[in-house]
């Protein structure tokens, strides 16, 4: 078990290094940092001095090592566009994106898992066929169209919910949360639904496929023959054994949720990291792009490490043997 986790930890470090390298290459090779920081009136001598001060004349490996060191100490540099520290810009946008992502993921799981179990247990039922048809259409409708539809029905036609922004937020020691006001929750509903629907179809399809496979296995047949009550059979015996692949997919989905939050945030003008990233692409604000990438990769790696820990908790075999 320790070996298994250590291996995963080392892999994660390598992924982070690769992403940091990508961010560094962006910063170093896409456009010239010096010409971005200076104006037309800066003299060539000043430019050269700045180049030397920034260490852009140092050997490549040395520059990369310093870049990584700065990142580790939380020094992410300055935005080309706003001249503010990138760390502050990202940090002020992060709560909005994380809250949106967590609620979307919850919607995906709380609806997706029961729906997947139901459609697996009643494969020929009318409701199952209807649900499967809806999910096929759901997968084909782009996220932004789902967002527009929700805005149109609940925002414009019915006028029930706000269609842009975060509503009221409460500052909890630097973390702007919308969980504590009615207004904030109302503003959160439509974006979270938009983001959650696509993930929901993925969760449902996966749980359904796993569940159908497990239900065919010998131990379930034996349990049925033994007369185990249906409820216990389905949830204790069958569903528990589908959890390992399901948890894997949740880890992967988290990445999807964060990425698609770019689209959702754009539709709903949600002031999160995704919107910031879009702006930074439009203005070729390389430092912000690079740091966004590193932050996203960090969350992704972190979630997948937690997933690995959960494996150990869920699957007793991993706790006993040290082989895998």
């Amino acid at each position: 078990m320790v070996f298994f986790l250590a291996k995963r930890l080392i892999q994660s470090v390598f992924v982070m290094l690769a992403v940091a390298f990508l961010a560094f290459s962006l910063f170093r090779f896409v456009g010239d940092p010096v010409s971005q920081m200076t104006g037309v009136e800066t003299s060539v001598q000043d430019q050269e001095r700045l180049r030397e001060d920034l260490g852009l004349n140092d050997p490549f490996a040395y520059q990369f090592a310093r870049f990584t060191g700065d990142m580790l100490r939380g020094d992410f540099g300055f935005s080309y566009r706003t001249r503010q520290p990138v760390a502050e810009m990202i940090a002020s946008r992060m709560p909005a994106t994380l809250e949106l992502g967590v609620v979307a993921l919850l919607i995906s799981l709380l609806v997706g898992i029961p729906a997947g179990v139901y459609t697996a247990l009643r494969p020929r039922g009318f409701a199952t066929q209807a649900i499967l048809m809806i999910t096929l259409v759901g997968v084909s409708i782009p996220t932004f169209v789902i967002g527009i539809m929700l805005i149109f029905f609940f925002g414009v036609q019915l006028g029930w919910l706000p269609t842009f922004g975060r509503g009221g937020t409460v500052n909890l020691g630097g973390w702007e949360t919308s969980f504590l006001t009615v207004d904030g929750w109302r503003a959160l509903i439509l974006p979270a639904l938009t983001l959650g629907v696509y993930q929901l179809t993925l969760t449902m399809r996966l749980v359904r496929a796993e569940m159908m496979e497990v239900m065919q296995s010998d131990y379930i047949r034996f349990a049925t023959a033994r007369g185990v009550p249906m409820g216990r059979l389905y949830f204790r015996h069958a569903l528990a054994n589908t959890m390992v692949p399901v948890i894997t997919i949740i880890g992967l989905q988290f990445g999807g949720v964060i990425a698609f939050s770019i689209v959702t945030e754009s539709v709903f003008q949600w002031p999160g990291m995704g919107l910031l990233f879009l702006e930074s692409i439009r203005f070729v604000d390389i430092p912000v792009m690079g740091v966004y990438l590193v932050v996203i990769a960090f969350f992704f790696v972190l979630v997948n490490l937690i997933v690995d820990l959960l494996y150990v908790l869920i699957d007793p075999r991993l706790r006993i043997s040290d082989v895998s």
Binding site: L26, G31, A259, L293, A297
Partner: peptide, 23 residues
């Protein structure tokens, strides 16, 4: 492939587009 799979397609496409804008 593994590293790229960690980044969803839309993020990769946006990133490539941003790089092209810079270059």
């Amino acid at each position: 492939a593994d590293i790229q799979l960690a980044l969803p397609a839309i993020l990769t496409a946006l990133l490539i587009d941003g790089i092209a804008r810079g270059i």
